[in-house]
Nucleic acid binder design. Structure first.
Lengths: 186, 186
DNA sequence: TTCAAATCTGAACACTTTGTTCAATATCGA
DNA sequence: TCGATATTGAACAAAGTGTTCAGATTTGAA
């Protein structure tokens, strides 16, 4: 009665096909035909799993977001940046595909949503209730932005620094500004 | 012999139509039909001016980039951030359209290209030749990233701060980090 | 091994969008 | 007014989208 695994495999094949295609092509230019050809899947099968090409992309992001979360929930400090960069390095191909082929938008919006909240909480813990919430939100957004920007740059430039170095640079660039802004030590 | 003005007007109408449509819709979902309907322009006219919908978008960005440059070339310090935010506020509708409807990618890539170089030069002036060029590039990219992120946030949140305040915050967030990174005073 | 449920297949279909072509029409400066 | 240039819109082929459905395949459970 449980044929889920078969579906699962099919979905995985479709997902993988999209990611592979995004390595060389922009999301917009990819057709459903190309996806199902590469995934070796029938047209109607595709549409029985996903309403849309966009629905597929969303689900890829979702899955991706969960992986990211696994990395970032074992968080001590601001964020385990070194581990994050290591994760990025391991999934180099996937990240590249997203950052180049997909519309960064989609990814940026999604990741911002998650991480903004994470950083906002951490900041609130450090600050108590004394600072204006809008300002805290802005700074949280800022921190996420820096992180995303650095990851993007790092991959574009073919990882000229190690994850450890990126960790160091990230903290050097971000921490003094935030400390100055709120008059605290992080 | 010079019927340029007529063409000019037509192009402007098309450009404006796209921007207006991007206020409510994503670039991808906009059809050429919608554009020419709103611009009151014939189908063949559109294609005699632009090869593509993408070509149109590029040209819009180009024009847009020039406006930005006008603002940012009268640069003393790192960048006249207050004036920049004022410019953004004045062209609120346009920026919103770009940041929401267009694929931030396109814009981000384009703007990064311009501003990265600007900041890289400014940094080099301050630093002399002593620092590794990759590092300087990274920090320049970082500065641009912060700027873009803050602008995006500011518009999404419906401008909760004045341009002056955003100027202050930008400098508070960015300057200490860069100073710490390079061991200098900006 | 057998069987029924779940899943996949692929061809056929109507529909939308794209980009081209071209003869007719409109506009502008001289 | 004339002539060069720009615009128009209808017609067209090509490509892609999303749906439908009858038949084939795969699966786990008996």
């Amino acid at each position: 009665m449980n044929h889920d695994r078969r579906s699962q495999r099919t979905r995985q094949a479709i997902t993988d096909a999209l990611i592979e295609l995004m390595v060389d092509q922009t999301y917009n230019t990819i057709t459903v035909q190309e996806i199902i050809d590469r995934a070796n899947v029938g047209r109607s099968t595709f549409y029985s799993h996903y309403a849309d090409k966009d629905a597929l992309l969303s689900s890829v992001f979702e899955q991706f977001g969960k992986e990211l979360e696994l990395t970032s929930t074992r968080a001590y400090q601001l964020l385990p940046i070194r581990e994050l960069f290591e994760h990025v390095a391991e999934n180099h191909r996937q990240f590249k595909a997203f950052l180049w082929g997909s519309g960064t938008d989609f990814l940026f919006r999604a990741v911002h949503g998650h991480l903004d909240i994470h950083f906002e909480k951490r900041l609130q813990e450090k600050l108590g209730e004394e600072k204006p919430p809008v300002l805290v939100k802005m700074v949280a957004h800022h921190i996420t932005g820096v992180l995303m920007t650095l990851i993007q740059w790092w991959l574009d430039e073919k990882k000229p620094f190690t994850p450890e170095e990126m960790d160091t640079y990230f903290h050097q660039l971000v921490v003094p500004g935030v400390e100055q802004m709120f008059g605290i030590r992080l």
